[in-house]
């Protein structure tokens, strides 16, 4: 991770609620280079908000502030909506949880991928088609010509997620944000999808942020991990050290997971402790 792709400093997000504003992110700072960065946390921890804030995809009613939100030379905070449209899908791509909802049900696979390609690179229709077929092959779809003619509802979950990866990566983005890309998939296909994602990201020399609630998966897949809780980053550590984390929240999360290698009489239920928020590392 020599050069920094995305740099975030003191990012705060709040949503309007019945009694003033409710904080979703309380000042988080991190940077990501050409590496696999994992962001783990439970629902409501703010992990998805962080990803969406970087894409500037939060709803207009959200109150966003940051000291710095920089994608290489571009100041994302100052970028116009028009510039953002070029950046999204062009330099920054996002892979979402469920391809059934993220793909347009009325368009064929081919139409969606070529559209994404032509929006961000100045290529002809024929070039876009060729690139799309190459891309489908690159995500290990055996018969790209057949699959290209299908509609999203005709795809299985794993196949849909490959198509989404193809669509998101065809414009050769510098940074891919994957928000729970495998949570809607069966266990036995999760590994394949992550391998494909990793392969593509490495081939393009891009960075990857993997947002997930699944600690073992992130520990296994990423280089570096941020643990989030209550809209803050609790700790940052190397992924291989995740099972030996020392922050009480991470420890509690690890312990609450039913172990696969031994029998335990009772699981440890994390008692949420307000002090966690002060023990940031």
């Amino acid at each position: 991770m020599t050069d920094t792709l995305l740099e975030i400093e003191n990012l705060r997000v709040a949503y309007p609620s019945a009694h003033g504003y409710t904080d979703a992110l309380r000042g988080i700072s991190f940077s990501v280079g050409r590496e696999r960065l994992g962001i783990v946390g439970e629902s409501g921890s703010g992990k998805s908000t962080a990803g969406r804030a970087a894409m500037r995809l939060l709803p207009p009613k959200a109150r966003v502030s940051a000291d710095r939100l920089q994608l290489q030379e571009i100041d994302l905070l100052a970028a116009s909506e028009r510039q953002m449209r070029e950046i999204r899908g062009g330099r920054l791509a996002m892979v979402l949880q469920d391809p059934r909802y993220a793909l347009n049900p009325m368009k064929t696979v081919m139409a969606q991928i070529t559209e994404s390609c032509r929006l961000h690179t100045k290529c002809s229709r024929a070039e876009a088609r060729d690139q799309a077929l190459d891309m489908l092959e690159a995500v290990h779809i055996r018969d790209p010509r057949r699959v290209a003619r299908l509609y999203p509802h005709e795809l299985s979950g794993g196949m849909g997620q490959r198509v989404m990866i193809a669509m998101m990566l065809i414009a050769k983005p510098q940074l891919v944000i994957a928000d729970e890309p495998t949570s809607a998939l069966d266990v036995t296909v999760r590994g394949q999808i992550l391998d494909i994602l990793n392969e593509r990201v490495e081939a393009e020399g891009a960075g990857l942020i993997l947002i997930s609630h699944d600690l073992p998966l992130v520990a296994d897949f990423c280089d570096r991990v941020l643990v989030m809780y209550g809209g803050q980053i609790m700790e940052e550590l190397a992924a291989r050290d995740l099972s030996a984390a020392r922050h009480p929240y991470t420890v509690a999360l690890n312990e609450s997971l039913p172990p696969l290698d031994r029998k335990v009489a009772e699981l440890t239920v994390p008692e949420h402790d307000p002090k966690w928020l002060e023990q940031r590392r």
Binding site: E42, S43, H213, L215, A252, L253, S256, L257, P258, E266, L267, T268, V269, P270, H272
Partner: peptide, 11 residues
């Protein structure tokens, strides 16, 4: 459910 909540329900 989240894993921390899951632990309580499983127990």
């Amino acid at each position: 459910l989240d894993v921390s909540v899951q632990a309580g329900v499983l127990n």
